[in-house]
């Protein structure tokens, strides 16, 4: 474990807590893409199948359990408890356009052709594009609540910090995982224009609104 990975995990945890707080406080999931949350639940489910078969550390296990539980709880809130506030008209990105190509790629490009390894690879590739429905929704509505932009900033920062973690592990541990690094870079690049808007607008107290 290194400081970048710990900061990354904390940023990821913060993002999830911000989202839950937003929905709980405002009793609404307006502006949030349910499809992205479904994709995240799929990412955690397929990545953490080794939850009971390989024990890394207490930290690793508890974080995995929390990520899985919070992702399904978020879906419950969006599609059940606060269903009336779910904006399905603007959440119109076709998830199959992401899941199918990513599923095919996981079969073709992986470290080893084993079920758990292919599912892990699928989860890594899927996570890199899972935010697209959310970014698509923000571009369609043309704006996002400030709390939602904080959520996206924390979520985007987590994988950016993981990139620093991989650089660190390459030089200090000799560890390098090409699949995770490439997918992590793609994932972070997708946030670039949002990061720009967040830093130039939200941090100046303005609302996040995309140029029409």
């Amino acid at each position: 474990m290194n400081v970048f990975r710990l900061l990354g995990d904390m940023s990821h945890l913060l993002a999830i807590l911000i989202l839950l707080l937003k929905m709980w406080k405002t009793r609404s999931c307006a502006g949030i893409s349910g499809k992205t949350q479904i994709l995240f639940a799929l990412v955690f489910t397929t990545r953490y199948l080794d939850l009971f078969s390989s024990f890394i550390s207490i930290y690793n296990t508890t974080m995995k359990l929390f990520f899985i539980a919070s992702s399904y709880f978020t879906i419950f809130l969006m599609y059940s408890k606060f269903k009336a506030t779910y904006d399905s008209n603007h959440d119109s990105f076709r998830m199959e356009f992401l899941v199918v190509p990513v599923g095919g790629l996981a079969f073709l490009v992986n470290h080893e052709f084993l079920p758990l390894e292919i599912l892990w690879t699928f989860s890594i590739y899927l996570e890199s594009v899972a935010i697209l429905p959310q970014l698509f929704m923000v571009s369609k509505t043309g704006e996002a609540e400030t709390i939602t932009s904080h959520y996206l900033f924390a979520l985007g920062s987590y994988r950016l910090l993981y990139i620093f973690n991989w650089v660190y592990r390459y030089y200090f541990d000799g560890f390098f995982d090409l699949i995770a690094v490439v997918a992590g870079c793609v994932q972070t690049i997708l946030y670039c224009d949002f990061f720009y808007l967040y830093i130039t607008k939200v941090l100046k107290g303005k609302k996040l609104s995309l140029p029409a």
Partner: peptide, 10 residues
């Protein structure tokens, strides 16, 4: 890239 079966990252 060596064998990275035990993925120790979240």
């Amino acid at each position: 890239t060596g064998k990275t079966f035990t993925h120790d990252e979240l």
